[in-house]
Design a protein around this nucleic acid. Structure first.
Lengths: 195, 195
DNA sequence: TCGAAAATTTATCAAATGATAAAAACTATA
DNA sequence: TATAGTTTTTATCATTTGATAAATTTTCGA
């Protein structure tokens, strides 16, 4: 991980402003607390078992969140440029995370620590509104994911993923996509071959 | 559905107060906006295709949220006494809900409309904090559900459900539990028989 | 550019789950 | 309490996915 000081904080501020009516002084304070960090392809942004202390915004690149057991690895979600993410349970509880975050490409992130985020949310109502909306969007996304996992077989979920993420498929390996679908890469290869 | 005026609003207010520092006047205004409604076992609290206009608190009883396609029905989640719930995507978007809510037992609910909730969240920062925490808890819950669905076969998910919801199993039918696990009731019966 | 490592495909057999039907057990109510 | 309706179980066969191994293709660094 490499830490920079260049200020592309604007994108993240813009993202926040798009979700709430952020006052000038709140935006200024928020900007002060942001830091920009870079990760090389394959680097871990958060290790499984470490505490997630930040909310991240992706300036460029691609990351996956997921976990591994003895045999396999599973993907919770992919995040690309313009997305904001964290590992919510670890971030909120400040307990070790069951999930890992890894850069799938060289990735530039803007982040804010939980400590500073809490201060801002306490002081500025719109920041809390932003966080509420952020978590709400994640919830709605997970609801449909759960519904789809209940209802559809892996082949249908694969087709849905292709349809809904046309831009991502060239950037994600077969193995990672299989991990997202909850099947083995051999099974996904078979599904793709259309047998 | 039967509408009552008896004020067991206290339980819901207590639930809210447990998650945020609710001021006296906010609590008073909140209490004014609550209404208590009763549903008989089997009644629909929200039809699939209707708009979810409320956040609900369960004073007594048990409900399921879920959806059906042509062949089968699936359960998103069960909620019992002391729980607070809504159909988040429909509640937020005010679009028709893909999910139904149904009473599994005679159930008494305290509810607040989205309109009034928005007013309170706008006016009182702690109410927004409450809502943020409510959605956060739902998110954390769904994260582990997704992780479990990726990682575990139905038999293991069934064992986990028994372990984590010892009080619910006597109150839920085999069919509904199968719908929650995403398998047929015949499959669940087979799993239970230990073949 | 070559060659080793990694990713993907193909093949085979086993295990998990679905679909269907029928029997058995349970529930509610006339 | 008798009976009709519902829920659960049991059984059989089909489909989906997993495990393993080996072949093929791709990627990437020396």
């Amino acid at each position: 991980m490499e830490m920079e000081r260049y200020k592309s904080n604007r994108d993240f501020i813009g993202f926040v402003s798009g979700l709430c009516a952020l006052e000038k002084d709140a935006a200024a304070l928020l900007s002060q607390q942001l830091e920009t960090v870079s990760f090389k392809k394959g680097e871990a942004i958060l290790e499984q078992g470490s505490i997630c202390r930040y909310v991240y915004y992706i300036n460029s690149g691609l990351v996956k969140t997921g976990f591994e057991n003895k045999e396999r690895t599973f993907i919770m979600r992919f995040f690309a440029e313009g997305a904001t993410f964290t590992v919510l349970d670890s971030y909120l509880s400040q307990n070790p995370s069951a999930y890992k975050i890894e850069a799938l490409e060289n990735t530039v992130l803007t982040r804010i620590s939980r400590t500073e985020m809490d201060k801002l949310c306490f002081r500025f109502h719109p920041m809390e509104t932003f966080f509420r909306k952020l978590v709400s969007m994640a919830s709605v996304n997970m609801m449909s994911r759960i519904g789809e996992m209940l209802e559809e077989k892996a082949a249908a979920r694969y087709e849905n993923f292709l349809r809904e993420n046309p831009g991502l498929i060239q950037r994600i390996s077969l193995g990672d996509l299989a991990g997202y679908l909850g099947i083995t890469q051999v099974s996904l290869s078979r599904i793709r071959s259309g047998i």
